[in-house]
Design a protein around this nucleic acid. Structure first.
Length: 445
RNA sequence: GGCCCCAUCGUCUAACGGUUAGGACGAGAGCUUUUCAAGCUCUAAACCGGGGUUCGAUUCCCCGUGGGGUCACCA
């Protein structure tokens, strides 16, 4: 088999969105799996809507995601007019296309129509099998605004041919475009590439995912603190899965869900692409994100978080953050907001909070807090760690009733209704501050 | 509406004629070092309907039904 060449041809008329990401990903994975390459090109024949700003965004997004690609000599359709002309002119000369009525742009130039042979086009879709269309209803469709300005269908066919594209994996919304493109391709005498139409990513209402459904741009997910590997992992499993071993009940591979980009490339095959659309579920994306976040080493986590919020994060907080935050934004918010206020020099809270969850009266709480302070005194400052603090207090807490002792202790250290456990807290703020806060709590009672 | 595509728990999905229809997210319950989170255990939850084919259909075929896509001098 000749070398596999796929392509990702966005039109720079909007920010890189989730649907495009999956299309790019599938083309990337398919090429990579087969030792081929993926070309990127910009379909900017619509000069009105195409913007450099969007091009930059798409490039930036792919870079962030870690999806690599090859660039043709000239990736802009708008600058490939000579190439299109080279094929268009003979097409007209041979009577397979013709200049018709004037364009409605007042240029006086005539549009170019394709001479439809009115036949049935049948192609084998790699995911759907045989698909046929009766092209008669298409009529002699327009393929160029004029001899110098090709329209989408013409440009696509010529580009795919010029770039040697062997496999076209694209959204199912293009399936009915295929008939036109095959007709043009045949008239031009080009070899027909393989087609694979992948199911659409749907919104919760089952319609095609679009802006009106909320976040669709990768920028938004990036800003929400999602990891590129999580986004890719999740989106890869929308409409595709690695399958399992049918001979075994466990279905090992099919039950695994966390994959790296390389692992996806190793297992990716078109025959496991689904036919039906898949609804995009942010809750599950969050879970994937948390899983990938937990896989990061503490150092890497700290680096990513710093990149995300623009300032460093203390290393000793990383394990805690990793466990509690599903996204980098949640981690950053927790750090910046109230949740980690216990790290500050002073904390403020209502005295009633100390007894609120303690299931006992203020006098008892006072007694326990004094005892806790006393139990912690003997621990050397360098030895003041989660384990040693717990060891010092735990037997007493168990004997007296854990809620009675531990709740006030935790509130004294955090000043919050919800927080990490008191031992973790104590270790994080250190002996000096721990003792001081217990004394402050005592004064409140 | 024409044409095309699709159909397993609420959601993502496994199964490639024979299973107690499995897993994951989410939900509910419980456990754990109080709270929250995490973790662990358990529970509820699906083959769209009707005909065939077959000894046997979630699986193959047909017809319904439902959903989606597309019908530009946009891509």
């Amino acid at each position: 088999m000749s070398k596999v060449i796929t392509r990702f041809p966005p039109s720079p008329t909007g920010f890189l969105h989730i649907g495009s990401v999956r299309t790019a990903l599938f083309n990337y994975l398919f090429a990579k799996h087969n030792g081929g390459v993926m070309f990127l090109r910009f379909e900017d024949t619509d000069k009105e809507r195409s913007k450099k700003e969007f091009e930059a965004d798409i490039l930036e997004g792919l870079h962030w995601l870690g999806i690599s690609y090859n660039l043709p000599d000239e990736p802009h359709q708008s600058r490939r007019t000579e190439i299109y002309k080279k094929h268009l002119v003979p097409l007209v000369e041979r009577g397979l296309a013709y200049e018709a009525e004037p364009a409605n742009d007042n240029s006086g130039k005539k549009v170019v129509r394709f001479k439809n042979p009115n036949k049935t086009v049948t192609f084998v879709d790699l995911v759907r099998g045989e698909v046929s269309f009766d092209t008669t209803e298409l009529g002699d469709f327009v393929i160029a605004r004029n001899m110098n300005e090709p329209l989408y269908h013409l440009a696509v066919v010529i580009d795919d041919h010029e770039m040697g594209v062997t496999h076209i994996l694209r959204g199912e919304d293009h399936i009915s475009n295929t008939q036109r493109q095959i007709l043009i391709s045949e008239a031009l005498g080009f070899a027909r590439p393989e087609y694979a139409h992948i199911p659409l990513i749907l919104a919760p209402d089952k319609s095609k995912l679009s802006k009106r459904h909320g976040a669709v741009s990768v920028n938004e997910y990036r800003a929400e603190g999602y990891l590129p590997e999580a986004l890719l992992n999740y989106v890869a499993l929308l409409g595709w899965n690695p399958g399992g071993d049918p001979s075994r009940r466990g279905q090992a591979e099919a039950e695994r869900e966390i994959f790296t980009l390389d692992e996806l490339a190793q297992t990716f095959t078109v025959d496991r692409i689904h036919k039906g659309g898949a609804i995009f579920d942010t809750e599950k994306l969050k879970w994937f994100n948390h899983e990938h976040l937990k896989k990061l080493s503490d150092e890497e986590y700290a680096r990513r978080l710093q990149d995300f919020m623009g300032k460093p994060c203390a290393m000793n907080l990383v394990p805690l953050l990793k466990e509690r935050a599903q996204t980098l934004k949640e981690a950053a918010d927790a750090l910046g907001g109230g949740e980690y206020a216990f790290l500050e020099d002073t904390i403020t809270y209502e005295a009633t909070l100390l007894t609120q969850g303690a299931k006992t009266d203020a006098e008892t709480v006072k007694k326990h807090l004094m005892k806790v302070s006393e139990l912690l005194q003997p621990i050397d400052t360098p030895n003041f760690m989660k384990e040693t603090v717990q060891e010092a207090v735990f037997a007493y807490a168990t004997a007296e009733g854990r809620a009675h002792v531990l709740w006030p202790m935790r509130v004294a250290l955090s000043g919050k209704e919800k927080s990490p456990d008191p031992f973790t807290l104590a270790a994080l703020i250190g002996k000096e501050k721990t003792i001081r806060r217990i004394e402050e709590a005592l004064r409140k009672l």
